[in-house]
Amino acid sequence: MSVLAYIESPGGHIKKIGFEVATYASKLAVSLNTTSVAIVIGKAENAGSLGQYGITKVIHINPNDDVSFDSQLYTKIVSDLYKEHGANTLVMAHSANGKSFAGRLAIRLNAGCVSGVNALPSVENGFLVSKSVYSGKATATYNISTPDRVITVMGNSIQPEKIGNDVTPDLVNIDLGSPKVKVTEIKVEAGGVPLPEAELVVSAGRGMKGPENWGIVEDLANALGAATACSRPVADADWRPHHEHVGQTGVAIRPNLYIAIGISGAIQHLAGVNNSKVIVVINKDPEAPFFKAADYGVVGDLFDVVPRLTEAIKKFKNQ
């Protein structure tokens, strides 16, 4: 018996969400009295570091290849290893690729599936996991009644925790055959941290008046080391790229800090951000609905307030 973790390595590198999944799997393994095994597919120079997060064994498939994502190929690799290791729970990231084969694996393994869980399960009485539902307005606790389970973990739900040392991965080379989805091009968006993984996010809305004014938002984000986001009308008007759009119809995020600048706080916007730990709202209208969802609020003209905040952050960082 074991807990199996599938860890992704986009661009040949395991990122924070990968260490979160590793931490989740190793903690779950402890509560189930078993060990955790991680699978990494394709290039990942830091695969051995998964051991630091409590993973007992790392299986690294085709470590020298760029293995592009195909849900059928990945399902075969992961389900074969799941069976080989007699696992009963599979843990993976609630990421675009993770979600693209979690359901497939659930069918292949006759497993119950809950996606987007936000905390470790309780295993005393059944297998209870919780997730945020209805645009963050409620939490649902699920029981998975099958002996096998597949769960995907929402980013920023668990703090990566170093409790062990690097391990030497088992290197395995397999014949990948010819995947049915043939990737021809990957366009990496410019900019630092991808939004779903960012711990600090600076976001701006229609209050900015136009794309030419975004310099002050970027300055604040740079001072903080934050990712940038925007409201939907801003992305729709092409003031900002689409991948920055957060909310019900965009990306859902849960950073530690979300700073909303010139955003009114419509329910569809809140749907994507109200799981943030701390929300700061900067708006000139004291009646803006966003203040109701905020922890800290500044009533004022963003064109004055934002540069002042950037200066204060810089001063703080230099101390």
Partner: peptide, 12 residues
């Protein structure tokens, strides 16, 4: 396809 921080073009 829209992924985190990238777009992937493929053929099926």
């Amino acid at each position: 396809r829209e992924l985190e921080g990238s777009e992937e073009v493929s053929q099926i």
